[in-house]
């Protein structure tokens, strides 16, 4: 017997949208029915090759389909999503937003994926946020974290023109989410682009300020548990080393520090494996959509 699936669509058939297409087609709860763009493109052609209805008719075309999708994954731009979001909502369609529009609550599936299952619009934060917030949360669920800081290093080739034109958006959004979703009192985010060839795989470092007498064994165990949880949707998410604890210093206001070093290797679905930053966005979006879909199916059952 076929398990029921929830019909979904992708708007924005660029590289992100195409990578997402591969992931959604593997899903056992999501039925990718439509891909919409605004011009004929390689992405639309790939969608058709993959057996998905695809059109350059944009959101107008999408909203004229029957049945309508229940969930739209938007991989366009912040501006386009801001314009499209009210139309989805009016049509009773929920949105998983991969753009920097940030209209709905910020979701990192391993951390708060269950908290916004009925939201009409959820924001996937940023690539660096998806990679690092689970580690901040892994520490903050064990011990208070007055301050956490993340450093995301990505290959130059994986940073698109949108990211480059507004790099402050990454810094602000990610820093805010490290606090709001990660559970630190204050957050800071840093991003570095590295053009080395062959391209470097995404690397992330998470520093969390902790009390001098925080339970280090419990923090380490929590970090390992959280890595497993992220690996459920990003298999290439790994620790480079055990969490590193540094003793309190005056410079840190008498606090100690734990540092977590991560590598995020992409699944190589459409995007190359070094672009773990993009893979973790599409994987997190797919995961979030699945959680929302399961909740819907559960409510129907």
């Amino acid at each position: 017997m076929d398990t029921p699936k929830v019909p979904v669509a992708i708007v924005g058939p660029g590289h992100i949208g195409t990578d997402l297409l591969v992931k959604l087609q593997r899903s056992d709860v999501l039925d990718l029915r439509y891909v919409a763009g605004i011009v004929e493109s390689e992405g639309l052609a790939r969608a058709r090759e993959a057996g998905v209805e695809a059109s350059a008719g944009g959101v107008d075309w999408l909203l004229a389909q029957d049945p309508l999708p229940r969930i739209v994954f938007e991989a366009t731009s912040a501006k386009a999503h801001a314009a499209n979001a009210p139309r989805y909502e009016a049509a009773g369609i929920r949105a998983v937003d991969l753009t920097p529009a940030h209209l709905g609550p910020m979701v990192c599936p391993a951390v708060n994926g269950e908290d916004h299952l009925d939201a009409v619009n959820v924001s996937m934060i940023t690539c660096g946020g998806q990679a690092t917030i689970p580690m901040v949360a892994a520490v903050s669920r064990v011990t208070p974290v007055p301050y956490a800081e993340i450093v995301a290093s990505i290959s130059s080739r994986s940073a698109g023109p949108g990211t480059r034109a507004n790099i402050d958006e990454f810094t602000h959004t990610t820093g805010g989410a490290v606090a709001e979703v990660g559970g630190a009192d204050r957050g800071k985010a840093i991003i570095v682009l590295n053009p080395v060839e062959p391209p470097m795989i995404m690397r992330d470092t998470v520093y969390a300020m902790i009390g001098a007498d925080a339970d280090r064994a419990a923090i380490t165990a929590s970090v390992h548990d959280m890595v497993l949880k992220v690996q459920e949707y990003v298999p290439g998410y790994t620790l480079r080393a055990e969490p590193q604890f540094d003793e309190p210093t005056d410079e840190w206001g008498g606090h100690a520090r734990v540092a977590v070093f991560l590598e995020v290797k992409g699944n190589g679905d459409h995007l190359p494996p070094y672009a773990g930053n993009l893979d973790i966005m599409t994987a997190a979006a797919a995961r979030t959509g699945e959680l929302m879909a399961r909740a819907e199916l559960g409510a129907l059952a």
């Binding site: 450093v151 570095v192 080395v196």
Partner: peptide
Amino acid sequence: GYVGGQEDM
């Protein structure tokens, strides 16, 4: 080939 800013590395 680390660049400026990658002090964590």
